[in-house]
Structures are given as C-alpha cells and as structure tokens.
Design a protein around this nucleic acid. Structure first.
Lengths: 149, 149
DNA sequence: ATCTAAATGTAATAATGTTGCATTTATATT
DNA sequence: AATATAAATGCAACATTATTACATTTAGAT
C-alpha cells in the first residue's frame, strides 16, 4: 500500500470535531497502515518527538470517539486498533477475535470472525463480548516450521 | 459456606511442593471463598499485614503451579481466580467466559460456558482461547431494575 | 489579522511491576 | 527435640506506566 491519502484522516478528525494536528494525523496513518494493534510504546518509539503524554491523550480521545478500540494483550499491556465497523462515541463493537501471537507479540484483530451466540447463566446481562486467542501468527508459524523441520 | 477446612489447602500446597505458610493459606482461603476473581489490591486491603511484594510473589507462584489463573479486566488490571479444571504447571485451560460487571467491577469465571470451536484464518495456530463479556451481573442487574422501574 | 478554545509540552505525582538482599521460618534430618 | 538448610518473607530501591495540573502554543472561527 502506498502512502494513504491524508485527507481521509482529516475528514475523520473533522467528523469527530477534533482539530487536525500533525501528531493526530501521524498516529492515524500509522495505525491504519498496520493490520495489527499498536501499543503506546510502539508509537513512542516511532514518534519520539511527540511527548508521551500527548500520545496518551490522543489515544484516549480516539477511543472515546470510537475511532480506535483498546485491547489488552496477554501481558496486560494496552494495544489499540482502528475500529472497522460501526463504533460510535462511547459505544464500541469489537466483537471479533483478538489474536495474540506468543512469538512476535503482535495483536491481530480478525474482524471476519464474529462472536457466536452464547447463552449466559440466569441473571447475567451482557452488552459486549470479546474473544481472545493466543498462539502463532502466520508469519511466526512459518518460521518455527522452518527451523524445526 | 462455613469456613473451608484448612487442611484442604495444606494438601494443595503440599502437592505443589510449596511450604504451608500463613500468608499462602490465607490467600487460598480468600480466593476459594469467592466466586469472583480477586485483584492484588483486593488482597492488599484485606491482608494489610502482608507485604505487597509477598502477595505479588504468592500470586506468581500460584499461577506458575496452575493453582490460579490470571485474567485482565476491562481496565487492564490483573485479576486472579482459582483454576477449577485440569490446569497444570505452566499449562492453563481457562477456556471459559470471563464476565466483567461494569457496575460492581467483579470478574466472574463462568466455567460451564466453554469455548465454541472456531475456524481461524489460514496460518493462525491457536493454542488457547479466552472469552470476555461485560455487562451487568445478576446482583447489579437486579439493583438497576429496582431503581429504574 | 486576531481571538479563543483546544491541543500540546513540561513537570510532578500515583500506582504498579519487579529485583536484590538480609532476615526469618517451615521442614527435613539427625 | 535440636538444628541445619532451602524456601519464604520483608524491606528498600528502582522501573514503568497511568494520570493530573498548569503554562504555552496552535488550529480554526471571526
């Protein structure tokens, strides 16, 4: 994928009444260019000129607005991924599989895999579901197969 | 439930070649007496005489041994719950639903709800699954119904 | 061009995770 | 029962992360 058109992100910020700042555009373009979730340390290492508190606040406001959603990996560190479907303000629908690779530590949002219906025990009223899996992602399972065989 | 017999926990520690100390027995009896997961801050507030590093290490060793398993709640804080089934050393099977109540913040392990089979996309090799849901637990949904109606 | 609310940077604090080391304690052995 | 020893604990220290306050800068409206 070539460099994604910036005006797309500018529209996105507009839509949510957020000012179009350099930092926000860069965060958006990084997150949209990857198919894995991004942690704040990831962002910090790439955009070391931006203060980490600013990144922290950008991630927070994006999450509030429903632009990204937060998912915790196996170590409990927060990762953020762009919301694909119909996430709105304070209203997320990340009911898909979050795949956590134990080797490269990447978190993949597998949107095609939707949640199966579940019958909860009497009394429990769920308003959202999230599914986690851990194991090897395609890249890492190829690598390990290569070294073992 | 009356006070659970302590010798049960002593046997458990024995089985894993852990010394039977007061701190460990108290942690076990607290965790077994609840049907929700316990965070370290929970333990600290109840057992303020035990050093927080000790609690940290007790939780770690219990997890290694397969006595308890760790689950992160919606805020990313670690919660621990007793393993019911066949968890062994470094080998957990918590493939059940973790229900996170948005009101009382409790995490319930609903063991009866096992994971449905899933077809992962080509290349992904999963070795464990975990399912999360959030919403209202029985107690809190009753309460909110009472105040609304 | 200028004004204003929003966004950022800086500093500071709180909470949490983690390690090293000295002391204490459970338990195996005599 | 006394004691030797490895394990467990407490304490201090440090690292990392989350969070807030406030002063300065900047995007966007006028």
């Amino acid at each position: 994928m070539a460099q994604t058109k910036n005006f797309r992100f500018e529209e996105l910020l507009d839509k949510h009444h957020l000012k179009k700042t350099g930092a926000r555009l860069r965060v958006l373009s990084m997150m949209y260019s990857k198919n894995t979730a991004t942690s704040q340390p990831d962002l910090e290492s790439v955009m070391s000129d931006i203060d980490r508190v600013t990144l922290y606040r950008i991630l927070n406001v994006f999450e509030e607005k429903g632009i990204i959603h937060k998912v915790f990996d196996l170590n409990g560190t927060a990762n953020y991924a762009v919301c694909h479907a119909d996430c709105g303000e304070n209203h997320h629908h990340d009911e898909h599989l979050h795949f956590n690779c134990t080797n490269c530590k990447n978190v993949y949002c597998l949107d095609d895999l939707h949640m199966p219906r579940l019958n909860l025990p009497e009394g429990f009223k769920a308003d959202s579901f999230t599914l986690y899996a851990s194991g090897l992602c395609p890249k890492c399972s190829k690598k390990s197969a290569a070294t073992i065989n």
